[in-house]
Design a protein around this nucleic acid. Sequence first.
DNA 1: TGGTCTGGCTTGTTTGTACAAGTTCGCTTA
DNA 2: TAAGCGAACTTGTACAAACAAGCCAGACCA
Lengths: 247, 247
Amino acid sequence: MAMARYEQIAGDLRDAIVRGEYAIGAQLPSEAELADRYGAARGTIRQAVAVLVNEGLVGSRQGARRIVLGSERSQSFAELHSFAQWARSMGYRASGAVVRSDRRPCTQSEAARLSLTPGEEVLTVLRLRRLDGEPVLLERTVYAGWIAPAVERLDPSCESVTQELYDAVGLVFAYGEHLIDAVAAGSEDARLLGVRRGSPLLRQRRTTTSQEGRPVECSDDRYRAGSVAFSIRNSTSTNPLVRRTGD
Amino acid sequence: MAMARYEQIAGDLRDAIVRGEYAIGAQLPSEAELADRYGAARGTIRQAVAVLVNEGLVGSRQGARRIVLGSERSQSFAELHSFAQWARSMGYRASGAVVRSDRRPCTQSEAARLSLTPGEEVLTVLRLRRLDGEPVLLERTVYAGWIAPAVERLDPSCESVTQELYDAVGLVFAYGEHLIDAVAAGSEDARLLGVRRGSPLLRQRRTTTSQEGRPVECSDDRYRAGSVAFSIRNSTSTNPLVRRTGD
DNA sequence: TGGTCTGGCTTGTTTGTACAAGTTCGCTTA
DNA sequence: TAAGCGAACTTGTACAAACAAGCCAGACCA
C-alpha cells in the first residue's frame, strides 16, 4: 500500500535486527550491498538506514561499517501521547474515568503555554487512568477553549481520548513538549492513586500541539512509582533529551 | 572551517528562530526560496531543515509550509551525558567527589548490560555531584573492566569524568540508553543528598557506549527532586522517548 | 618485531532532475 | 451563501552521479 520504499526497507532491516539476524555489535551490510539487494538507489538506502540511526538501533560513523547498537523496538509518537494506545501495544488493558471537569478562565502561565489571551476560558479535566484495573496515572489536563466542547461531549469513561477526538472532529496530535521530574504525592494524589502521602511520583508535564501548530492541551500527569518508566536512546548525532534545572 | 554546508544553514536558521525573527507559529520560507537565498540545492536545504525538525524546533507536513514550533535551543548529547558539561552550559559551577570506589566481579544483569562474561571484574564508583555547592546528584556507576584502570587514575574530585577520559585515553561516549523513573530515597541517598528518607528522587538509569559500539559504563543516577527535570520534544515523525512499564 | 603507509572500502556531502502527494485559496456553480 | 473544483504552490520520495573524508587491513620498511 502507501508506504514509502525507504520505510519498507527500514522496516525490513529493523525486523532482521529484532529477529537477531544481526547481533548487537555486529556490522550491517554496506550501503552499496543493500542498494544492490533491494534494487534501490543509494540515497534511498541512506534514508532507510537513517530511520534506524534515529531510533538508536544502529550507530554510524564516517568510514566505518554501521553497527547494531540495540534490538529493542521503540514505539511511536502516538504511544507516548496516548496512554490507551501505549497500553494496548504492551498488551495491557487501559481504563479511565473523569474525576472532575470544570470550565474557568485561564491563568497567566496557561495562556502562555497554550498561546491564549489571558482570561480566555479553558476546560480542566482530572482523569484517573488504570492499567489492568490498577490505578497508575493521574492526569490534570487543561484544554484550550476551542476544543472544549468536543472534549465535554466525550464519554467520561472513554478509553482513548486521543482516538475519540480524532474520530469526532478529526483532531490530530502532532507535536509535543515534555518535562519530566519527580514529586511527592499530595493528599489528592495519594487518595486517588492509592499510595501514601509524600511517596514518590513520576511527573510528566506536557503540552500538545495540533498538526497546524496550534496548542491543544497541557497536562500534569503523575505516575505511581514503579508502574512506568521513560526510555530514551540517543547519540552524538541526535539529541532528543535534555536536562533542565527544575522550576 | 570543516562544517558542512547544511549544518551552517541549519545553524543560521536556528539562530534566526531563537532571535525571534520567525515567531512561534509563523511559517518558514519555502525550500525553493531558501535554496535561492543560500545558493544551495534543494536537497541541501532539506537536509538543513531536517536538523531543525529533528530538534523539534520546526514542524513539517507534506503540502504545507513549515511552521516554527518552539524557540528554545536544545542542548547536545554531551550535555546529557556529562553533568559537568551540562552545568557549565547553564552557567552553574559543578563539583563532585568520589564517596566510594570498589572492584568486584560483575553480576548477571551487569554482564548483560555491558556485554561482559559473567564474573568478569568491574569497577563500581559512588560519586556525589554538586551544583553551586548544593548536593544534587548521586551517581552509582559500574565501569567495564577494560576501562577501569583509566578511571582509577582520575582525580577523585575531578569535574568532568567524560572530559578527563577523553584526554587520557581518547575515549568518546557516543551512544546511550536511558531509563527514567521516580524512587524513594534510601538511607544512604538521604544522608548524602541531604533529604529525608523516603522523599522522592528522580532516577536515571543509563548505559553508555563508545563510538565503536562497545559498552563502557552503566549507572544509576539519582537527582534530588526539584533540582533537575528532563525535557523532550517529539512529533509524529520522530519518536525519541518511549514509555515503559517499570521493572 | 614493530611502526608506517598506502590503497581500497565505506560513509558523508552536494548537486540535479523528475514525479507524487498534500495544502491552500480563489473562482465557479448550484 | 455554501459547497465543490481546480490550479498553483509546497513538501515528500526516488534516482543518478561525483567527490570528500574517515576507517581498516595488508604490505612494506626499518
